[in-house]
Amino acid sequence: MVFSYFPGCTLKTKAKDLDLYTRKSAEALGITLEELPDWQCCGAVYPQAKDEIATKLSSIRSLASARDLGYSLVTVCSACHHVIKRVNHDMQTDEDIVLRANNYLQLDTPYHGETKVLHYLEVLRDELGFDELAKRVKNPLTGRKIGAYYGCLLLRPSGEMQFDNPEKPTILEDFIRAIGAEPVIYANRNECCGGYITLENKPLAVKKASAVTASARANGADCLITACPLCLYNLKENAEGDMPVYYFTELLAEALGVK
């Protein structure tokens, strides 16, 4: 199993753990992640306006580069995944964007959304299989009660993300079971933590992040896992109380005995 890998800026700086444990767990599982040689920042938010072209170009460069290498493109940060997946969707469906982006980029072969974009969780679920993952676990996290925090970006808009049922997702819970722990279902797992607003309106970010941790705590979670560096920051730094929050890859590496 070989994939092109798009780590993203935050994983090179503040979220090094997310990157490190992704690579270590992949290695332990026999998944080869080849970092794209010329990746650029995805822009961190998906530009929704139909006339925003320039802000999508860096994602398209990465997508085209993965296509030329012949691999599916794997991301791990929720925000990168969201942006790249949706830009790819535009390149598959919006003729105007396709035309103007290709006119601008002047690639050797115009890009039309050929690359398959996968989140690392999707690789574990659909390519490796959670049953197979469970078999590879060396240190099952037995007895740990873990709340999955999906946030917004992995799930919505479900029509484009095609990740899971946006209101009743199961992928992270299945992942938690596969590493031997017990998933805790709580209603705010797919509600916004307010991470994007932290610079603009910190009190709002505090309120929203606290609602998430309170909902998780009320349902018996010992800790949360996430795939998003901004969610992790917000839930750890801004939420009231101190609910431990981990990248899902960190617990994966722990269960595989490579932490």
Partner: peptide, 11 residues
């Protein structure tokens, strides 16, 4: 109601 779990029917 699988797609309407914002109302917590399954929860």
């Amino acid at each position: 109601l699988d797609r309407y779990d914002e109302y917590a029917y399954s929860q």
